[in-house]
Simulated scan of single mutants.
Amino acid sequence: MCGRFAVTLPPDAMAQLFEASPANDLPDVPNYNVCPTVNVHVVTGGASGRRLMPMRWGFIPHWYKSPTDGPLLINARAETVAEKPAFRLACRERRCLILAAGFYEWTRTPEGVRLPWYISRKDGAPMIFAGIWQDWGRDDPRPTCAIVTTAANTDLSGIHERMPMIVEQADWPMWLGEAGRGAARLMHPGKAGLLDWWRVDPAVNSNRAAGAQLIERLVED
């Protein structure tokens, strides 16, 4: 799964990377502790070109009467995203890319203590997650999104059984629907050897924590 991540790339660099038109109300960066329900940086495709825009991280099905009318849907499993009533139409028609520098995951000690890890790309490139999105609300529609997850690859299986689906640059057009059909073939854990990970300070266990120190490698005694 993915329940927390970091984003550091400036918006103008994001727009240049994706050749996308940026919105004026993008979230502030850097943010080393992106939490569910906040706005995140999302790229969409379409006939008018790619757009870089803010979306609420937490997909809201159209039948919810309020954002808290049911479970908080921050992730969508690749194995079932095309079948679940909440996600299936978005999976066919509204796929997106969600930008990150890396994400956090937790393990537990035998005593139940949560130990945070930070996971990023070895090559230092931005980490681009597969996402789905839809507008929610009638009077003032609000775009909302979820991160698609897969089974963990051999890199991360020792930390968690799930991971975000990472989309490589060559596959962006396929996932965004710009290159025709075939996005389903992208829904796999991805090749091993792409990622690096290290323990970080438990301060990130709090959703109020902030600052670049959250992703620094923890030096243990």
Score class of each variant (00 low, 15 high):
Gly3Gln: 01
Ala6Ile: 10
Ala15Asp: 01
Leu17Val: 09
Glu19Met: 12
Ser21Ile: 11
Ala23Asn: 05
Pro27Ser: 05
Val29Lys: 04
Val29Met: 02
Tyr32Gln: 05
Pro36Ile: 12
Thr37His: 00
Thr37Gly: 01
Val38Ile: 13
Val42Asn: 06
Arg51Gln: 14
Arg51Lys: 13
Ile60Pro: 03
Pro61Val: 13
His62Ile: 11
Pro67Ile: 08
Pro67His: 08
Gly70Tyr: 07
Gly70Ala: 14
Gly70Met: 07
Pro71Ser: 14
Ala78His: 04
Thr80Gln: 00
Glu83Pro: 07
Lys84Met: 14
Pro85Thr: 12
Phe87Ala: 10
Arg94Ser: 13
Ile98Ala: 05
Leu99Lys: 05
Leu99Asn: 03
Tyr104Cys: 01
Thr107Met: 07
Arg108Asp: 14
Glu111Phe: 08
Leu115Gly: 05
Ser120His: 14
Arg121Leu: 13
Pro126Met: 10
Ala130Asp: 02
Asp139Lys: 12
Thr144Phe: 03
Arg162Pro: 02
Glu168Arg: 11
Trp172Arg: 04
Trp172Leu: 09
Trp172Asp: 10
Gly177Asp: 08
Glu178Ile: 10
Gly180Arg: 09
Gly182Thr: 04
Met187Arg: 09
Pro189Tyr: 12
Gly190Ser: 06
Lys191Cys: 08
Ala192Trp: 07
Gly193Arg: 04
Leu194Phe: 05
Leu195His: 12
Pro202Lys: 12
Pro202Val: 10
Ala203Gly: 07
Ala209Ile: 05
Gln213Ala: 15
Ile215Thr: 15
Ile215Leu: 10
Ile215Cys: 02
Ile215Tyr: 01
Leu218Lys: 10
Asp221Tyr: 09
